[in-house]
């Protein structure tokens, strides 16, 4: 290095912040579609029984479908939350990756030797 060469180090964000929220929309579209399909399915099932007094077997099936509906809903909600979390994490990691350490070497002709 010549007498007037100096170096500094600094962290810089090399790219601007990007918004990844669109990904959440894309992914949650699938869960929304699945939800719609579930609704269609359950609707179809619930039309089958008109009256079920004294038919234990039918009552069991009706109870079961209510449970299934509920657990499917919960599963989709969990999946949605997971999706949101994944997108958030991705965002964080991407933004982090954009920040890098730069070692800058430069010439300073006016710098005094006495330092």
């Amino acid at each position: 290095m010549s007498r007037t060469e100096k170096t500094i180090q600094r962290r810089e964000k090399l790219l601007s912040t990007t918004d990844l929220s669109n990904k959440k929309v894309i992914l949650q579209k699938h869960t929304n579609n699945i939800n719609d399909l579930d609704e269609d399915f359950f609707k179809m099932v619930q039309e089958v029984v008109v009256e079920e007094q004294e038919a234990e077997i039918i009552q069991k099936l009706e109870d079961k479908i209510v449970k299934m509906k509920k657990s499917n809903q919960l599963l989709l909600e969990d999946t949605d939350r997971k999706i949101a979390k994944m997108v958030r994490n991705l965002h964080e990691q991407v933004e982090d990756a954009k920040e890098q350490t730069l070692k800058i070497t430069y010439e300073d002709p006016l710098s005094l030797e006495t330092f």
Binding site: E5, Q9, M86, N89, L90, Q93, D96, A97, Q100, T101, L102, K103, I104, T105, Y106, E107, D108, P109, L110
Partner: peptide
């Protein structure tokens, strides 16, 4: 009057957390 001579990037990339 400073003039940049060179820049070196000390690359560091994390692996994607296991999602």
């Amino acid at each position: 009057n400073q003039e940049i001579i060179s820049i070196e990037v000390l690359e560091e990339f994390e692996t994607l957390k296991q999602e």
